[in-house]
Write a protein that binds this DNA or RNA. Structure first.
Lengths: 155, 155
DNA sequence: AGTGAAACGACCGTAGA
DNA sequence: TCTACGGTCGTTTCACT
């Protein structure tokens, strides 16, 4: 989040290529080329550049619900003292899939995935609230995921 | 989030295939096959099944920072009355990339991406706090993203 | 940065265990 | 659900613009 370099300036063709891969990350370069009006080789070079520069990556994403993780929640964490160690401890917990240091009435926001309520309770008590420096937590149990983007920027 | 079907039971081979695609979504079936000890056709069939059933998808993910969106924040929203319409309105805003209905001291959590602070202020005032039913908001500006998973479950 | 062509490798359908 | 195999299509390299 901190490294401020210049934003990558993408032309419409690169944006179109990204959109193609957002729809289906395994679409062939040839097919993308047809869609965006470029040769296969040119598409491949652009994709290479986009991934090498870190603007884009193509990855598999799995659905927690389909895998039996029926309980998701965001945990707002208030910390006494330095937040660094607490956030690292949180990030090291497998059930925690998202950790961000924030400014506001929470110092850290952490998203967690659990199989059920019992797991969530234990996660909170045994793994999160027991971390030294964690002063208090507030839990927001997910009821319905309304929108989720893995992709930003090309809008 | 609501449709509760049985969790997909994945054997070690399917988990290994998913891990391969989490590392690189464009890895060839043949190469994955070598890594997991399966023929190319078998890998292809499994990937097909995983994507058809919605357990997994392969997509392009872009980095907002690299695209000039230097300000991210989570907005906690308190709503008077029905939360459905508010969440739909929020989800329709391009700068909002994540919306979830929650139980707790917020009714909705929404993640936003902006280019700078000015954009965030305007987003809040003109697009979010102006939605009928939005009683109050609390903003958690992101300072440092510590951990981000696009994938869960295979742990 | 882009195209085009030829060799190579991946992908897909089908058949069979 | 897997392997095997042939036809088709995608990818790679390279020479050229």
């Amino acid at each position: 989040m901190s490294p401020i370099s210049k934003p990558a300036q993408l032309d419409d063709v690169s944006k179109a290529i990204i959109e193609q891969l957002q729809a289906d990350g395994r679409r062939s370069y040839a097919e993308i080329g047809k869609a965006v009006g470029l040769s296969e080789a040119a598409v491949r070079q652009r994709v290479q550049k986009l991934t090498d520069s870190g603007v884009m990556q193509v990855v598999a994403v799995t659905d927690p619900m389909q895998l039996g993780f029926y309980r998701q929640a965001m945990i707002g964490v208030r910390v006494t003292g330095d937040t660094t160690e607490v956030s690292e401890r949180l990030a090291s917990i497998p059930a925690v899939d998202y950790v961000v240091l924030t400014a506001g009435s929470f110092d850290i926001l952490a998203e967690v995935v659990c199989e059920n309520d019992q797991d969530l309770i234990e996660l909170l008590n045994k793994e999160i609230r027991s971390i030294p420096g964690v002063q208090s937590t507030e839990t927001f149990v997910y009821l319905k995921l309304q929108k989720q983007f893995y992709n930003w920027g090309t809008r």
